[in-house]
Nucleic acid binder design. Structure first.
Lengths: 210, 210, 210, 210
DNA sequence: AATGAATGAGTATTCATTCAT
DNA sequence: CATGAATGAATACTCATTCAT
């Protein structure tokens, strides 16, 4: 009958979720009004409640919409690339990582920091699906470097997230100080990676006592 | 039980501010009820409003109470120490930095990330009084190392905050994933500093062309 | 009992305004609770705030609802009547004026006296739309009487509101002393008009030196 | 011991009452804060409550402080003057009446109109001590004029307050429209008195049927 | 499916009043 | 007498949620 309506039916949840993402990103959870989300999505409040039972429901849907399948992709890329650890880090890894500070992940980080406390299940969810896997991949890469003689055995094997730490640093810095400072995140990240690789390289002559 | 009248005008603001700090840290700005802050402080709502005109006022007082005078202290320490750059970084700097991830700064960071958006003046305040100064000190130390031949000339001169980036990383990580993971922030920070110093050291034979 | 949903968007504002008029009339602005207005209107507080952004908004709407279009009507009546000034004053004018002391204008007067101070824009509004026009009509009538020889030239041309002053007098008197005294406002007003016309009449032989 | 203190002790209530009068005049009863009154009076809130048990108490004291003993004085003046009714009205009465619209009575009127409703005892008090007596004096004067042949018998004998009605009119007008219009109350009152006397004069040839 | 009028519990803020000092 | 810190009840206003249409 009314294809216009039917065609949109499937898209509705996503439309609302996107509007909500923008709203939550701007104001945080508590300060975001459901009314506003509905208005942004061009939908009535009533309809919104048809798709999401509560405001919290909507919030969770927003957070979940961030699942980064690229994490697994990164893992695959590494295994299929046949590259050495350093080459992979300097190549695909660095390229990927440099895109993050200006990606929508900023929103996710902001929301997790602000609201994570109240939604432990979401934190758990992200930990399991994204973060711990990411850390696992990093560990695998470093281990691979050690195994094939590229890298020394360093404490980085126990805290591989150090390799990716500048991402979080840049995201936070940009989120908070965007008005005060234009951080050159590319350079910062590259420098960090350079330093890490120096540190990891087995041919480095210094004694790393600790 | 408690005497109704305590007549301790001077201590009150600090008492209230501390209670508010705890409350804001737990729930964020919007989700914190003034009523609760008053209760925590063992004070009536009315009294709270005698000292702070609005909830926002209170919030700002909390944030401002974080001024880290230790920043300047660090600067002084460096200049008076007579230590070389590396020695200073490995010594007093590292010691100081390792205390941060578990200090109340966690709260500050959380609040700045969650609510900074809404209070640009506070962000500005912190930028001016704390962050930009901190960055300045880092730069001065590195520059000193370059000047006296300890360090190579690297991009770290332009993004000195990289030296301190793990602090923010650890704070965020612990804030969000305290239930999932016990991050060994000491090791992470030490490893990072080791790596940075390797990278900076002039005697390092590699070409850092980048 | 009452259906929760009445869906009568159009009538709502007027219903609320009327309830508010009664409440404000009874207690004045500050002492009227929005809750009470809502209750009187048989409506929830929330709905009230859907139509009026603030309590002051509501107050202004109430005051504005008093616009007396009869003012202009009076002017037209005079011009179309073809009556002489005295005949008009003794006829339509007197009839109209006698209705006022017991009309809802009492409320308006009370509110303007009590709250006018705080709402200068409302006073201005009424001055412009009602009072100054009313004074203008009075002046026109008297001037007409002078022009066609009915009336002498008297100071009433400069203070024509004197002709209508008993209205305000009666309203105030009744408002304040309703429990102490039953003022016969009809007689008072008629007497006043009689006196004014005597005074105005050109054939009156006395010298008005003043 | 402390004559400074003791000397003021007696004056305190009056000082507070005056400050309160100013405050109530500006804002009305409900919108006046006891704090403000105390501050205006240069006194602590606690002391204020030592003299006046409640805010309402204070209000009543303010209102009562207005008792116009001049009312009785006017009555005496009339009886001792030996003047005829017209001469008295044109003389001492007019002079007295013309002072009123700009006297503090404005405040009293405003307060009675705004708050009288809530304080019937005050209204009663004023009715008995001031207003009904004033009306009585007016009636006596007019009656005297009738008795000695100066005046005709008119309905003014039943509504003698008409003679004084412009006072109230001017007070209200000035209170409400001070920003819009500079009413020449002297002229208005004089004109009104002229007209009333014309009307009252027995030698006036017209038939006053009503 | 879609709307938006209607609800009411919840929150910031004010201010008369008290009372330890 | 005098103070002003302290209280808490009262009140304007918001917003998630419901439901007749």
């Amino acid at each position: 009958m009314q294809p216009r309506y039917q065609r949109r039916k499937d898209a509705r949840p996503a439309e609302i979720t996107e509007a909500a993402m923008a709203a939550f990103a701007e104001n945080g959870y508590a300060a975001t009004r459901v009314d506003d989300v509905a208005k942004r999505a061009g939908v009535s409040k009533g309809l919104l409640y048809l798709y999401f039972k509560t405001k919290e429901d909507l919030f969770k849907a927003v957070i979940r919409s961030f699942i980064a399948p690229r994490i697994d992709q990164l893992s695959n890329t590494f295994e299929k690339s046949g590259l050495g650890a350093e080459a992979f880090i300097r190549g695909p890894f660095l390229a990927f990582v440099k895109t993050l500070p200006d990606s929508p992940i900023r929103i996710l980080v902001r929301l997790m920091v602000s609201e994570g406390h109240k939604h432990p299940d979401l934190v758990e969810y992200y930990w399991e699906h994204v973060v711990s896997r990411g850390v696992g991949i990093l560990k695998k890469i470093i281990q691979h470097g050690v195994d094939n003689g590229e890298f020394r055995r360093t404490p980085l094997l126990d805290t591989p997230q150090l390799l990716a730490s500048p991402i979080l640093f840049c995201v936070i810095w940009k989120t908070v100080f965007h008005a005060q400072d234009q951080l050159d995140s590319d350079t910062l990240i590259e420098t960090h990676v350079d330093a890490m690789l120096d540190y990891l390289n087995a041919h480095s002559p210094q004694e790393k006592s600790r």
